[in-house]
């Protein structure tokens, strides 16, 4: 597998942090994981001079303080972070939230399964997919109303 080998995980739930760490270290042992427990830590981490940039952020949506959507907006506002993939990993079932995340510049919006086997598979497939894709500069997608498929 080509592509990045460092990912940043932004997740406030201790249970989910443990599950994500266990799932990825089993499925993709060559990946290096770095965890942040709140949205407000993301920008300072990414913009620290000389800091190694991850290839992808795995982002929880509903966190106290700065939520996932605000994080996406702030990251996408910084042209220096254009190459960064943003994957929202959430148990939220609100379609409007998914639309808002895509409009803000998220690359994937992935449902967080309950079953651990499925949880691991979903993470592996997501990370495999993005690691095999060359990074290109991001284009923010049009608002949801312009999308060809809408319910």
């Amino acid at each position: 597998m080509t592509g990045f080998d460092l990912i940043l995980i932004v997740e406030d739930s201790a249970e989910d942090v443990e599950a994500i760490e266990r799932a990825i270290s089993r499925a993709l042992p060559d990946l290096r994981l770095e965890f942040l427990r709140s949205g407000s830590e993301v920008l300072p981490r990414l913009t620290t001079p000389g800091a190694e940039l991850p290839g992808l952020i795995l982002l929880d949506l509903n966190m106290p303080g700065e939520g996932g959507l605000a994080v996406i907006q702030r990251v996408r506002a910084d042209p220096a972070l254009d190459q960064l993939r943003i994957v929202v990993f959430t148990s939220s079932e609100d379609q409007a939230e998914a639309d808002a995340c895509y409009a803000a510049g998220a690359d994937s919006y992935i449902f967080k399964p309950i079953n651990f086997g499925l949880f691991q598979t979903v993470l592996r497939q997501t990370l495999d997919y993005w690691r095999s894709r060359p990074n290109v500069a991001h284009i923010v997608v049009p608002p949801p109303g312009d999308s060809p498929a809408q319910i």
């Binding site: 690359d107 060809p148 498929a149």
Partner: peptide
Amino acid sequence: ELRSAVHIDMRRLNALLA
């Protein structure tokens, strides 16, 4: 009639469907 579309890369799927 296409009523719902989900892709790991929605940006790419939207471009395809367009």
